[in-house]
């Protein structure tokens, strides 16, 4: 849970209580009138003269009621929309169909690891389509829009692991675009951020060989199979060293998938488009470093 959880719940429960009361009154009178004034019991209806007083009450009471709801919602919103200045800043890269979190020292992670009790400001960045950064347990949600800087913030108050879901429909694997938010003690967080190897409980890709893990963490496997089945993109098994038919600037040609080719496919996927596939691979220079590309290539070399 986070400080935002209670803030949002307060307004929500207030509206819920008022709604239940109103619904109860409506249903009560509806059934009561239908029974009390049924034709067999009340054969002759009596007209009700219109009363300006009653009508004024009908207008004023609901107006006041909804105004209180508006104000309650507004105070919570103000809270959610003003990240304290001393927040820890995390860049959140949302892409089809994975999340990547980058800390101020360049440390990257597939799960959002945060210190307990610290303000965290998530700056949302999308490279392709709109995604929704949504942490149900913290009651926060904000779209990541390409070309627009947006953010959400929170202050976690209990340790544990929570889901980060994508709430804005973004295509085929929208429902699989899930990461973990793991709240850890501040000293552990700091050690981890400085590069110490710690596996936190609940982490998404624990205990996986390093090269493979990288493909998972950077979301490559949501489009590329490590077996030989076709997904959104071509399968990786047997790719290295094979002959690939590609379209380069509108011209079709055959190339050998060597290190240079794979490197280019990752940093500039629109340059050589594999035939039979759409040009939908997001450019990955923000999410994989040169060093990591090297590790991916050597992993692919071994994937026969």
């Amino acid at each position: 849970m986070a400080t935002s959880t209670g803030v949002v719940d307060g307004a929500l429960i207030y509206i819920l209580a008022m709604s239940v009361l109103l619904l109860f009154l409506i249903v009560f009178f509806m059934i009561y009138f239908a029974v009390r004034y049924r034709a067999s019991r009340n054969p002759v209806p009596s007209e009700l003269p219109e009363s300006p007083l009653i009508e004024a009450i009908w207008v004023i009471v609901p107006t006041l009621l909804v105004t209180t709801m508006f104000i309650y919602g507004l105070t919570g919103f103000r809270f959610l929309r003003s990240a304290p200045a001393n927040s820890l800043v995390v860049k959140v890269y949302a892409r089809q169909w994975s999340w990547l979190f980058e800390y101020d020292n360049g440390k990257k992670s597939a799960d959002l690891i945060v210190p307990l009790g610290k303000n965290v400001r998530c700056e949302l960045i999308s490279a392709d389509v709109i995604h929704g950064f949504y942490v149900p347990a913290f009651r926060i949600q904000q779209d990541a829009v390409p070309g627009l800087a947006t953010y959400a913030w929170f202050n976690a108050t209990t340790m544990g692991s929570y889901y980060i879901l994508c709430s804005q429909y973004c295509g085929r694997r929208h429902s699989a675009m899930i990461a973990k938010l793991i709240v850890v003690p501040p000293d552990q967080f700091e050690a981890w951020r400085q590069g110490k190897k710690i596996e936190f409980t609940g982490a998404s890709y624990a205990n996986m060989p390093a090269g493979e893990r990288l493909l998972y963490e950077r979301g490559c496997v949501s489009c590329h199979s490590l077996e030989d089945n076709k997904m959104m993109g071509p399968p990786f098994k047997g790719l290295f060293g094979s002959q690939v038919v590609v379209t380069t600037a509108g011209v079709q040609r055959t190339v050998v998938a060597d290190s240079a080719y794979i490197h280019k496919s990752i940093v500039d996927p629109g340059a050589d488009i594999v035939s039979g596939f759409p040009n939908t691979m997001p450019p990955s220079k923000d999410v994989v470093s040169e060093d990591e590309i090297g590790r991916i290539i050597s992993y692919l070399k071994g994937l026969k």
Binding site: A11, L12, A34, M69, L74, G76, S167, Q168
Partner: peptide, 28 residues
């Protein structure tokens, strides 16, 4: 009559979504 019942539920839950902070949780 059932229109009134169902529409009231629809309308009242619209208040949750119209309110700013609950909407942040419930949107989409």
């Amino acid at each position: 009559l059932s229109f009134i019942f169902l529409f009231s539920i629809g309308g009242l839950t619209g208040l949750f979504l119209g309110a700013l902070s609950p909407n942040v949780q419930l949107h989409n």
